[in-house]
Deep mutational scan, measured.
Amino acid sequence: KKIKIDLKKGPEGLGFTVVTRDSSIHGPGPIFVKNILPKGAAIKDGRLQSGDRILEVNGRDVTGRTQEELVAMLRSTKQGETASLVIAR
């Protein structure tokens, strides 16, 4: 099931960490939400869960991207702006 979640970045950030699983010589594996932090946009919104697979960030497919690339995409969202995620659960 795909779910679109918009998180408005506040002073505590987006409020979640990510982890890559099953990376191989063929490229990075899928990226999942690792933890929801006690402060930040994710816990206020309440929909994002540990174990959700991140498919898109701000309309860009993240398949084949590294964890570092995904984190850079999320960090490029400025405070007060919205990060738009599509996740699979």
Rank of each mutant, 00 (worst) to 15 (best):
E68T: 05
Q49V: 13
P38W: 03
E68P: 11
Q67R: 07
H26A: 11
G13C: 05
T82P: 07
P28L: 11
E56Q: 12
L48F: 02
R21Q: 13
T17S: 12
M73L: 09
L70E: 02
K44N: 13
K4Q: 04
L14S: 01
I43K: 12
Q67H: 15
L48K: 01
P28V: 10
G59C: 03
A88H: 08
R21S: 13
K4W: 07
F32R: 07
V62I: 08
Q49P: 00
I36C: 03
S76W: 07
G80K: 05
S84Q: 09
H26G: 14
Q79Y: 05
G13I: 00
K78N: 13
G80E: 13
I87D: 02
T77S: 11
V19I: 15
L48N: 00
E68M: 05
V18W: 11
V62R: 02
S84K: 14
R21D: 12
T66Q: 06
G40C: 03
T77D: 11
S84G: 10
G27C: 08
A42S: 04
G80A: 09
L85A: 01
R60V: 04
K1F: 09
N35W: 06
L85S: 02
F32E: 12
G40T: 02
S50C: 07
T82D: 14
V18G: 02
K4Y: 14
L55D: 13
A72N: 06
E81S: 09
E68H: 04
T17Q: 14
V71I: 10
S24C: 04
L74I: 09
R60L: 07
S76M: 09
K2Q: 03
R53E: 15
A41R: 05
R89K: 06
I54D: 01
Q67N: 14
T17G: 10
V33Q: 01
K34E: 15
D22S: 05
E56G: 09
E68S: 09
V33I: 12
I3H: 04
T66H: 08
S24M: 04
G13Y: 01
L74T: 04
A42Q: 01
G15Y: 00
K9C: 15
R21C: 15
G10A: 10
K34M: 08
G13A: 04
R53A: 14
L37I: 14
A41Q: 11
A72G: 09
R89P: 14
A83N: 07
V86T: 12
T17I: 07
T82F: 09
A72D: 13
A83M: 13
G80H: 06
P38D: 14
V62E: 03
D45I: 01
T17P: 00
N58H: 06
L48W: 00
H26R: 12
S23K: 03
Q79N: 15
Q49N: 13
G40V: 01
I43D: 14
V18Y: 05
